[in-house]
Write a protein that binds this DNA or RNA. Structure first.
Lengths: 266, 266
DNA sequence: CAAATTATTCGGTATTATCGAATTAAGATT
DNA sequence: AATCTTAATTCGATAATACCGAATAATTTG
């Protein structure tokens, strides 16, 4: 019954395709237009090679070329494809209204996430008009061990799965409070399972507190998690209790909308 | 001063990269998981060829492989890249609050679009009856000649640019009211320039009426357009006048936020 | 449990991506 | 304007490597 992912980080890659991907990734990383020469310098490949790859990508709009200078940037088709992928997540539609209510009720940032290949992938985010900007963005990835969403989803993994994820991704420290040993993480996850929620206490960013709860889908599995986060000084005591209750209630509604007929949190 | 796009639909493509792209496009088109065999059948390429390409794409999450059956689907990284591209459109942040106000005021669908390679690309959309933004159609492309947004943006083009777009994309008929001749389109665009707005009168879909106005950016150019659309029977007479006024007002505000200091519509 | 379908691996071959050099284009400087 | 400088693009020979068909492994179906 163990449906571990094969994780075939195969090494028989089509070289030119891999290079094309690396070009896109480089443009995404820099988050700005880049010239052919810059790319050549950065990647250490001949200009003509890069030019050929970019020309191919450009004609499909996977990369766009500026008209004034002829710099390259990520292409509009990626926007379209991304939206196509987003559309396949039914959860987003089910979660949106509930998330909106949470924002109104608590005035804090509400986020929806899922696990993807051992990392947290943020699917949706509603921001309360607060001063602090939270470092996550929709479509961004973060490690699992240091976020509320991540810990909720990790808590569902078998020991073997957990071990594998740690082996591949490690437990990098983001702040001095980040959990960096497997033993401590296991203890924490046991706690999460018992409580039915996870708390991130400045483990990803100083002063940021985050509470997260699981969402069940129609198959009875936890594939998504919901969180509320904000400045630690705004999330404590009675208010924290209310937030946890509100989150559990909300997650229950989303789970129901997803077809889950489970009615308690374990 | 004519900054026509070079439109080098080059033909010296890196074959394997092009095939990888075609694989992604096929998966996007089908909008469902596909098996290797299906892809092989559909594209007419040997399975082993496709397998190699998919393996490369898979390891970078440009394509994901189902765990139960081993079917392929668009990968999560495309979602991330798409969001990265979306974030680069400053206009979205500037337009959002104004669009929200329009939705509340008129109770109709509000859309934001731009031109991309001779087509309309929808950047954002707010739907009337739910306060929630439906991402579902954002990221879609439509021809320019048959939508309000498109006509507003076409109205800014030089005759040469217009001719080129028509040459490349044609004037396909979507309904029986779609403008299908260059002469009629030119007349219509002159009208749009004079009015400062464009109306789509069931040219893209029967019974759908749409009003659109231009947005100026900091450089004084029209790169975006804003529209309100709904059933024709709800958008007419006095109400239509109010909508046009509201749209012009809103577009002015967005233009201002984008750095435009123009204060009249021509 | 057998049969059939499908995914994946493998190795020889010829296509084709690659690279350095040459050419063209764009921008800056005098 | 004309020259210099830098960057983008094209070209052609060569060797690398993507491609394909066949064989194997893995799944699903009867």
């Amino acid at each position: 019954m163990n449906k571990d992912q094969p994780v075939k980080t195969g090494n028989s890659h089509i070289k030119s395709v891999e290079r094309a991907i690396l070009l896109i990734e480089t443009l995404a990383q820099e988050d700005t237009e880049m010239s052919l020469s810059q790319l050549s310098l950065k990647l250490g490949w001949p200009k003509s090679t890069i030019h050929g790859l970019l020309a191919t990508l450009r004609d499909y709009h996977y990369v766009d070329q500026s008209m004034e200078n002829s710099n390259y940037r990520l292409g509009t088709r990626l926007f379209e494809l991304g939206n196509r992928v987003a559309r396949s997540w039914v959860i987003k539609d089910a979660a949106r209204p509930v998330m909106l209510r949470l924002v109104r009720e608590f005035g804090e940032t509400v986020q929806l996430g899922t696990e993807d290949d051992g990392e947290i992938l943020y699917l949706d985010k509603l921001v309360a008009n607060s001063v602090v900007s939270i470092m996550s963005e929709v479509g961004l990835r973060l490690p699992m061990h240091c976020s509320g969403l991540g810990k909720v989803l990790l808590a569902q993994k078998s020991p073997a799965q957990l071990k594998r994820i740690i082996a591949r991704k490690g437990l990098p420290a983001m702040t001095k409070r980040t959990i960096t040993t497997q033993a401590k993480l296991e203890k924490e996850l046991a706690q999460v399972r018992e409580n039915g929620y996870a708390i991130d206490e400045g483990e990803i960013m100083d002063g940021l507190r985050c509470v997260a709860v699981p969402i069940w889908d129609g198959t009875g599995k936890v594939r998504y998690a919901l969180s509320i986060s904000g400045q630690a000084r705004n999330i404590y005591g009675d208010r924290l209790e209310h937030i946890i209750d509100g989150l559990k209630q909300a997650a229950g509604e989303i789970s129901y909308a997803m077809g889950s007929r489970r009615n308690e949190y374990q």
